[in-house]
Design a protein around this nucleic acid. Structure first.
Lengths: 125, 125
DNA sequence: TTAACATATGAGCAATTGTTCATATGAACA
DNA sequence: TGTTCATATGAACAATTGCTCATATGTTAA
């Protein structure tokens, strides 16, 4: 039954069909993964966390995170392309700030998950 | 001023100090990035999306996503370690389901972001 | 016990990613 | 105009990641 991606015999076809119908489009799920991938790096999470507090220029962020200007600039590019930050030029200086209200929600939900006490079963792993 | 991670002279020390005080602990931000990293893969996003609809065994998921049992099992391990799914054994069969209410929120906030219409400036990039 | 089966896991490989280094761009000012 | 400075970017390299393949684990049934 099916395309043999699993050697099992017990496949629950009715469940699979139901789930297949209800799941979002493949493309949406791909985009969603791409979005979370942007959040999935310590440097970028730190940048976002910093920009929650204040608009900052590239140089400030580099100084704050003890990283090179180049590294920060590369990461800001990623954040820009994901529409998570916006920028404003003032002469030579470029100020970055958060672009989206959703970010705070996503970020905070993530923090809540992190801060939850861990269950017994997990502690054993 | 500072540790010279940036050759700039214009560093706004007062902003940096303020932000530094308000930012979450480094370790929390690291954990947060680790959590989002788990969401940042198409296969795992699809698995989570499927488990929103129903509890499923490894074989069902493999069939649904047209992927090998091994690939799915490896990814389920990642999801388990991040406490995003739980499992229940019934004989040889292992059923997986979502472990956490936060997941739905994080996931849906992400989808909202994805679905937002894009601005003019971004369209040009 | 042995055979069959559902799942888990380790090693290896290709693809992706984050940083560094060198340099380009573009704005302000002498 | 030429210089200085803030930022952006391309190439290269090391580290990480997701999959495959082979095999281990653990459960059921003969």
């Amino acid at each position: 039954m099916g395309d043999e991606f699993c050697s099992c015999d017990i496949v629950h076809e009715n469940v699979i069909e139901m789930v297949k119908k209800k799941m979002p489009q493949e493309e949406k799920l791909y985009d969603l993964a791409e979005l979370f991938k942007v959040f999935g790096d310590t440097t970028r999470v730190k940048i976002i966390s910093a920009l929650f507090e204040a608009e900052m220029c590239v140089c400030d962020i580099a100084e704050l995170l003890h990283m090179t200007q180049s590294a920060i600039s590369h990461q800001l590019r990623v954040l820009r392309q994901a529409r998570l930050v916006k920028h404003r030029k003032e002469g030579k200086v470029v100020f970055y700030s958060l672009d989206d209200e959703h970010i705070k929600s996503i970020f905070n939900q993530g923090l809540e998950h992190i801060l939850e006490p861990r269950g017994f079963e997990y502690a054993l792993q």
